[in-house]
Amino acid sequence: MRIGELAERTGTPRRLLRYYEEQRLISAARLPNGYRDYDERNVDRVRQIRGLLDAGLPTRIIRQILPCLDSPRTIHFPDPEPEMIATLRAEMDRMSARIDCLVRNRDAIGSYLDAVLARDRSAAD
C-alpha cells in the first residue's frame, strides 16, 4: 500500500510515517517509480508505535522493543544497557500508575452515570 493509504488507515500523518521510517521503526519497499510500498503488517506496527509514543517512550527505546511485540515474539538483547533497563522499568511503573488512575476515573464516571440515569428514571416515574 502507498503512504497515503497507510496514513488514512492508521490516522497518522504522512510526515510522521516518513519520520518513523527515518528512525527505522517501519520500513517500505520502493517501487520502480520511487514510491514507498508498505505491506499490511505496517498498519499494526504504526498503531503499536503510536501507542508506545503516547505512553511516553522515546523512539530509541521503541526501536529496541518492537521485535518483542511481533508474533512469534523474538526477545534478544545481547548486551542490554543499564540505562535502557532503568528507562523501561520507569516507563512500566509510570504506565501502571496511569492505568490505575484511568481505572479510578472510569469507575467514577460509571458511578456518576449510574446515579444520573437512576435519577432520570425515578423522575420519569
Rank of each mutant, 00 (worst) to 15 (best):
A108D: 04
T12W: 03
V116W: 06
P58Y: 01
Y112T: 10
R18D: 01
R30I: 10
I62S: 08
L52C: 06
I65Q: 13
E22N: 04
T87H: 12
P58D: 06
L6Y: 00
I3F: 05
R18A: 05
P72I: 11
A118D: 15
C68S: 12
I75G: 15
I85W: 04
L69I: 08
L117G: 10
C101K: 01
F77Y: 13
Y112Q: 09
L25H: 03
R98T: 10
R89Y: 08
A97G: 13
A90L: 01
R73W: 11
D54M: 09
G4I: 02
L6N: 01
D125C: 06
R94W: 00
L52W: 02
D114Y: 01
G56S: 05
E5N: 09
G11W: 04
S96P: 00
P67W: 01
D114S: 07
R89P: 03
R47F: 08
R50D: 09
D120E: 13
L57Q: 05
A86D: 15
D37K: 09
R15F: 03
E40R: 08
E83A: 14
D79N: 14
G11L: 02
V116H: 07
Q48A: 12
M1I: 05
S111W: 03
I99R: 14
A97E: 07
E40N: 08
T12F: 08
D44H: 07
L25F: 00
N42C: 13
S71H: 15
Q48M: 10
A124C: 02
R73Q: 15
Y20G: 03
L57E: 02
G110F: 00
L102M: 12
L53Q: 11
A28S: 08
R15G: 00
P67I: 02
I26G: 08
E40K: 05
D54K: 10
I99K: 06
R94Q: 00
Q48V: 07
R94M: 04
P67A: 07
